[in-house]
Simulated assay, not measured.
Amino acid sequence: MAKERFSEADQDADGSMAHAPEVTVRPAAGAVRGVVLVLHGGRSNSFEPVRSRHLSPARMIPFARLLSSWGSPAGLETWSLRNRVRGWNGEHMSALHDARWALQQIRKRHPGKPVYLLGHSMGGLTALCAADDPQVRAVVALAPWLDSTTPLQQVSGRRVLIVHGDADRWTSPRQSLRYAQRIQHIADDVRYVTLTGAGHFMFTKLSVWHELSASYLLKSFSDDTGAPVDAKYLRRAADVLVEPSPLGVTL
């Protein structure tokens, strides 16, 4: 089925919105049982509009394609959000505002359906902060941009997977692990995976980044809905979930 694109500007009656978040929807094959929202990275401060040529949104396209390929036959719809501007921008929390808009659109189209969040870098921070949306069931944060001020209660009752390369020089693996430790008694389940030799932009062990993310979210989706996800797509997640030390998995 063909992809669909729409933006917040489409809902702007007077046409005054200069820049707007945009969603690309990869549809489910048949009835929608759940939705995954893919969130890209960005910068600390920038009000420059996000363009499709920018690497941060482009980096997430293979993740969305894989999730759609594996999940669409089982009823998973995949939404990719392109933010209006490139920065988080302090108290503006621009990326979080856009994610909440996208979640609102999911709620309008698919009320009550479970939602799963996948984000990289700033998108990982955004996913964890937006996890308090009532439809969200699980979050995967890849090399997320976290620190001691990152809120914790948003992941209450959610399943969380954090994946970070130990060679990351842009965001801190140590802060990610500390965050995972702090939410152990808040989230429903927490897993922290270290990818040895991998840096921030996921060039090293690329297939592991892609497949582990998709597998974990599809496992959550299958558990929540009973959707018939092909067992071969769940193996990556199974290997992590059986590890005796949930915050000490190394790949």
Results as ranks from 00 to 15, higher is better:
4 E>A: 13
8 E>Q: 15
8 E>M: 15
11 Q>N: 04
12 D>Q: 01
13 A>W: 08
16 S>V: 11
17 M>C: 05
19 H>Q: 12
20 A>E: 03
21 P>V: 08
24 T>D: 02
29 A>T: 12
31 A>S: 13
33 R>C: 01
35 V>H: 02
35 V>A: 04
36 V>G: 07
37 L>T: 03
40 H>I: 11
45 N>M: 13
45 N>K: 12
55 L>Q: 15
56 S>D: 14
62 P>S: 10
63 F>N: 02
66 L>V: 03
76 L>T: 03
78 T>S: 12
80 S>N: 04
80 S>A: 13
82 R>M: 14
87 G>T: 06
91 E>A: 14
92 H>V: 14
95 A>S: 10
95 A>C: 10
99 A>K: 13
100 R>A: 01
103 L>K: 08
103 L>W: 02
104 Q>G: 15
108 K>H: 10
111 P>L: 06
111 P>G: 07
113 K>A: 14
117 L>G: 01
119 G>F: 06
124 G>W: 01
127 A>D: 09
128 L>F: 05
128 L>A: 01
128 L>Q: 09
129 C>M: 15
129 C>E: 14
135 Q>H: 08
135 Q>T: 05
143 A>P: 06
145 W>A: 15
149 T>I: 08
154 Q>G: 10
155 V>D: 11
156 S>N: 14
156 S>R: 15
159 R>S: 15
159 R>Q: 14
160 V>T: 10
161 L>K: 09
161 L>D: 07
161 L>N: 08
164 H>M: 10
169 R>A: 13
169 R>M: 12
172 S>F: 08
172 S>Y: 09
173 P>Q: 12
174 R>Y: 09
178 R>I: 04
185 H>G: 08
186 I>C: 06
189 D>W: 03
191 R>I: 04
192 Y>K: 12
192 Y>A: 07
196 T>S: 14
196 T>V: 11
198 A>V: 05
200 H>E: 03
204 T>P: 00
206 L>I: 03
208 V>Q: 09
208 V>C: 02
212 L>S: 01
213 S>Y: 00
214 A>D: 03
215 S>R: 01
225 T>P: 06
225 T>K: 06
225 T>E: 02
230 D>E: 15
230 D>V: 09
231 A>G: 04
231 A>H: 12
232 K>Q: 14
233 Y>F: 15
234 L>H: 04
235 R>S: 02
240 V>T: 06
241 L>C: 09
242 V>D: 00
245 S>A: 14
245 S>W: 09
247 L>I: 04
251 L>M: 12
251 L>Y: 15
